[in-house]
Structure formats: structure tokens, C-alpha cells
Computed example of a mutant assay.
Amino acid sequence: MATIKQFEDLEIWQLAREICHDIWELFETTFLGKDYELRNQISRSSGSTMDNIAEGFERNGRREFIQFLSISKGSCGEIRSQLYRAYDRKHITTEKFELLKSKTEIVSKKIGSFMSYLVKSDNKGSKFDK
């Protein structure tokens, strides 16, 4: 964590941003864009996934970062659930569903692994440096 200077360098943030972009493309190219309730929910959860990684990182403390990563991981699961709803309503194709579901599973696993790493780390965060 010490060599990472900004959250944009984190692979998990980059992947979460990619999912957020993919979700936005669905709004523009499928009927999901017309299902305003589901559209708003999936937009918020995809944004929350990447935003909580950034916010936790910027807090400069390991424990807070882990807490925000946990929220981000939960939001990633929320996206996956909402993708099922979009698929069940026939808003998205099987291909799009499987691709995005897979991406959310990968990001969720990577966030979980990073959380485990941070739990074991001796680095408490830059706000504790003297």
C-alpha cells in the first residue's frame, strides 16, 4: 500500500470503474435505460463500488479503508443482484449478463483479497505517520 500514491492506481478501482462504464453503456443501448427504478438502483450501486474504494483510500487509515472496501464489496454484490433483475426482465442479453456478472465476481474477489492483505499488514496508514 505504501507505493500506491493515489486511488486511481489501484487495480480494484480501475476494474470497478470499468463496470460502472459498462453499466452506463447498457442504459444507452438496451431497455434497461427505460426501466428508471432499476436503472437508478444499478447506477447508484455501480458508482458506490468505485466511490467507496476511493473514499476509503483517501481516509489514509487502514481500518477505515477496510471498512469502505467492505461497503464497496457489498455494492458489487448489489450490482450482481440487479443484473439478475435486468436479465429476468429481458432488458439485457445472456451474453451481457454473463460478462458483467463475471466482472462483478472478479472485482468482489479482488476486493476481498485486498481486505485480507490489509488486515494482516502492519501499515496503519499515512495519517499515523509521524
Results as ranks from 00 to 15, higher is better:
Ser46Thr: 11
Gly61Gln: 15
Glu95Trp: 03
Ile53Ser: 09
Glu64Phe: 06
Leu99Ser: 11
Ser70Gln: 12
Ala54Asp: 11
Lys101Val: 02
Tyr84Thr: 01
Cys76His: 04
Ser45His: 00
Ala16Pro: 09
Phe97His: 14
Gly61Met: 09
Gln14Ala: 11
Phe97Gly: 02
Lys90Thr: 11
Arg44Asp: 02
Gly74Gln: 04
Glu18Ser: 09
Gln82Ser: 04
Arg85Gln: 14
Met50Val: 07
Ala16Asn: 06
Leu83Asn: 01
Ser45Thr: 13
Cys20Pro: 00
Leu99Pro: 00
Ser48Asn: 11
Lys101Tyr: 10
Ser48Thr: 08
Cys20Arg: 10
Leu15Lys: 14
Ser48Met: 06
Thr29Arg: 07
Glu37Ser: 07
Cys20Thr: 12
Gln14Lys: 15
Thr30Tyr: 02
Ser81Ala: 14
Ile53Lys: 01
Glu98Arg: 14
Asp51Gln: 07
Phe65Pro: 04
Ile19Trp: 00
Tyr36Ile: 10
Glu37Met: 03
Arg59Met: 15
Trp24Gly: 05
Thr49Glu: 02
Leu69Tyr: 12
Ser81Gln: 07
Lys90His: 14
Arg85Lys: 12
Leu83Arg: 02
His91Ile: 01
Arg63Tyr: 12
Asn60Ile: 04
Glu25Gly: 03
Ile53Val: 15
Trp13Cys: 07
Ile79Ser: 12
Gly74Trp: 02
Ile66Leu: 14
Leu38Glu: 00
Glu28Met: 14
Lys101Arg: 15
Lys96Ser: 14
Gly33Thr: 07
Ser48Pro: 00
Ser43Pro: 00
Leu38His: 00
Glu18Met: 05
Lys96Asn: 14
Leu26Gln: 05
Gly33Cys: 08
Glu64His: 10
Gly56Pro: 13
Arg63Pro: 02
Thr29Met: 03
Glu58Gly: 15
Arg80Gly: 03
Arg80Ile: 03
Ser72Asn: 08
Leu99Gly: 04
Trp13Gly: 03
Arg85Leu: 15
His91Glu: 08
Asp22Arg: 12
Ser48Cys: 07
Ile79Glu: 09
Ala86Lys: 01
Ser45Gln: 00
Asp22His: 10
Arg39Gln: 13
Ser72Tyr: 08
Ile79Ala: 13
Gln67Thr: 10
Asn52Pro: 11
Phe27His: 08
Leu26Ile: 06
His21Asp: 07
Met50Ser: 13
Cys76Arg: 01
Ile66Cys: 13
Leu32Cys: 08
Tyr36His: 13
Asp88Ile: 05
Ser72His: 07
Gly61Cys: 14
Leu100Asn: 12
Phe65Asn: 11
Ser72Phe: 08
Gln14Cys: 06
Ile12Tyr: 02
Asp88Leu: 14
Gly33Pro: 02
Tyr84Asp: 12
Arg44Pro: 00
Glu98Asn: 15
Leu15Thr: 03
Lys34Val: 04
Glu58Cys: 12
Asp22Gly: 10
Leu15Gly: 01
Gly56Met: 10
Lys101Met: 09
Leu99Lys: 15
Arg59Trp: 09
Leu83Glu: 04
Ile12Trp: 04
Gly47Thr: 08
